[in-house]
Computed example of a mutant assay.
Amino acid sequence: MLASIPAFLRIPLACLLLAANVVLHVTPLFVLTFFKIVIPVRPIRQAITHGLVAIAESWIAVNSWLFDTFTRIRWQVEGLDSIENHDNFLVVCNHQSWVDIPVLQKLFNRRVPFFRFFLKSKLIWVPLLGPAWWALDFPFMKRYSRQTLEAKPELRGKDREATRRACEKFRSIPVSIMNFTEGTRFTPAKHDAQKSPYRHLLRPKAGGVAFVVDAMGDAMRSLLDVTIVYPQGAGSLMDLIAGRVREIRVHVRQLPILAELRGDYDDDAVFRERFQAWVNDLWAQKDARIGRMLAE
Rank of each mutant, 00 (worst) to 15 (best):
W75A: 14
W75C: 07
Q76S: 12
E78A: 09
E78S: 13
G79T: 09
D81F: 02
D81K: 13
D81T: 10
S82N: 10
S82Q: 10
S82K: 10
S82W: 03
I83A: 11
I83D: 10
E84K: 12
E84R: 14
N85Y: 08
N85W: 03
H86T: 13
H86D: 09
D87C: 15
D87Y: 04
N88E: 05
N88V: 09
F89D: 13
F89R: 06
F89K: 06
L90Y: 11
L90F: 14
L90P: 07
L90E: 12
V91M: 09
C93L: 06
N94H: 06
N94C: 09
H95V: 01
H95A: 06
Q96R: 13
Q96S: 12
Q96W: 00
W98K: 06
V99G: 02
V99W: 07
V99L: 02
I101T: 11
I101H: 08
P102Y: 01
P102C: 02
P102G: 01
P102R: 00
P102K: 00
V103F: 00
V103P: 07
V103W: 00
V103S: 03
V103T: 15
L104Y: 04
L104N: 05
L104V: 15
L104C: 15
K106M: 04
K106C: 00
K106I: 00
L107E: 09
L107A: 10
F108C: 03
F108D: 04
F108K: 02
F108T: 12
F108H: 03
R111T: 05
V112I: 14
V112K: 08
F114P: 01
F114G: 00
F115C: 05
R116Q: 09
R116T: 11
R116N: 15
R116M: 00
R116E: 05
F117N: 08
F118D: 01
F118K: 00
K120L: 09
S121V: 13
S121M: 12
K122W: 03
K122C: 10
K122E: 11
L123Q: 05
L123E: 04
I124K: 14
I124L: 15
V126W: 05
P127Q: 03
L129W: 15
P131D: 03
P131W: 03
P131E: 12
A132P: 13
A132E: 14
W133Y: 12
W134T: 04
W134N: 06
A135S: 08
L136A: 04
L136V: 05
L136Q: 13
D137G: 09
D137C: 07
D137L: 07
F138M: 11
P139L: 04
P139Y: 01
F140R: 07
M141L: 15
M141Q: 14
M141W: 03
K142V: 00
R143E: 12
R143Q: 06
Y144W: 10
Y144N: 00
Y144E: 01
S145V: 08
S145I: 08
R146C: 07
Q147C: 01
Q147D: 14
Q147N: 12
Q147A: 15
T148C: 03
T148E: 13
L149N: 12
L149C: 06
L149W: 04
E150G: 07
